[in-house]
């Protein structure tokens, strides 16, 4: 087991390293990306351009630039943006993290509760019209582009019906921090939560339903049933518990990806300045220091979530360790 953990750790570091190198190389392979002229300003003199290039270390070979940037990011922690000069990168990420966390946590609560309810309902009425209906409703949620759904929500709440009593309470797009106003926080995130969770409700309900259906056929469930327990009891007591393993591990992976900035589209549409929006803006600005920081941040969560889920599985099932 220890060897497995060590192995996982090494491959985690490898993946993070490759991703940082890859982002770095992609950046410098992009034509027109040389930040010197953008930093120097419009119609800058050629001498000024050269001086700026030297100042920012852009005249050094690529490996040196990479090493310097990584040092500034992880060791001295004073990496600054190319676009908003003097703005440190790490505080930008730490300022964005709570926004993303608020969005993802709220959405997760909604999707977990609703998907368990829907999954149970479908499993109980397996094969009946209710089952089909619930599953199709879930599929409709999966099938809508999340950014489009967000736009439609904005159209209804921010303009078309903004002055009607139903939506007049909706604040303008943007984030209100929990510490400044808990109620404002709730109001500003309510529709983003719903929008983001729509996709996951469908997926999780389906996963849970399948797992439940499968568990119903397991020996211990048959035993429980043979002992004369009611169907509902069997479902809740025995099947649900085992079925939740797949559900929880899937949740771990999604949660990791979303906290790392995977909710990019939702954040962009609702103008929430989270990690995803920061990543998107930095890509739009071609602001390499911020791109690197956010990409590594995102990859870290994905990799860690992956590793945790694997480890849990390895602990539960020794065969995985050999695979």
């Amino acid at each position: 087991m220890l060897r497995f953990v060590a192995h996982r750790f090494v491959s985690m570091i490898f993946v993070l390293f490759s991703i940082s190198v890859l982002s770095f190389l992609i950046f410098f392979a992009t034509p027109g990306v040389d930040p010197a002229a953008r930093i120097a300003g419009k119609n800058a003199d050629q001498a000024t351009l050269a001086a700026v290039r030297k100042d920012f270390g852009l005249d050094k070979p690529l490996p040196v630039r990479y090493a310097v940037m990584m040092k500034k990011l992880f060791i001295t922690r004073d990496l600054t943006s190319y676009v908003n000069r003097g703005a440190k990168v790490i505080p930008q990420v730490t300022a964005a993290a709570p926004v993303t966390l608020s969005l993802v946590l709220g959405a997760a609560v909604i999707w977990v509760i609703l998907s368990i309810a829907m999954g149970l309902l479908a499993a109980v009425f397996r094969g009946k019209p209710i089952d089909t209906a619930v599953m199709i409703i879930g599929l409709v949620g999966i099938s809508m582009p999340v950014f489009w759904l967000g736009e439609v929500v904005n159209l209804l709440t921010q303009s078309r019906f903004h002055h009607s009593p139903i939506f007049s309470w909706v604040p303008p797009l943007g984030y209100t921090s929990f510490t400044s106003s808990p109620f404002g926080w709730f109001k500003s995130l309510f529709f983003p939560w719903l929008t983001l969770s729509v996709l996951y409700i469908g997926i999780y309900a389906r996963v849970l339903r399948s797992a439940l259906v499968e568990a119903q056929e397991e020996d211990y469930v048959r035993t429980a049933r043979a002992k004369g327990l009611t169907e509902t009891r069997v479902l809740l007591r025995h099947s649900l518990r085992t079925s939740l393993i797949a559900f929880v591990s899937l949740f771990g992976l999604d949660f990791g990806a979303l906290v790392g900035g995977g909710a990019l589209l939702t954040e962009v549409v609702f103008n929430l300045h989270g990690v995803g929006k920061l990543t998107f803006d930095s890509l739009q600005n071609l602001d390499l220091p911020v791109i690197l920081a956010t990409v590594i941040y995102a990859a870290f969560f994905v990799v860690v979530a992956n590793a945790i889920v694997d480890l849990v599985y390895a602990a539960l099932d020794p065969r995985v360790r050999r695979a």
Partner: peptide, 23 residues
Amino acid sequence: VKSPTSGSFYAGIVGAKACLAKP
């Protein structure tokens, strides 16, 4: 500070050439 216009607007000041070369 290598102002963007240092080489255009202010290059006509006496001594600016040296300043542009060695800010």
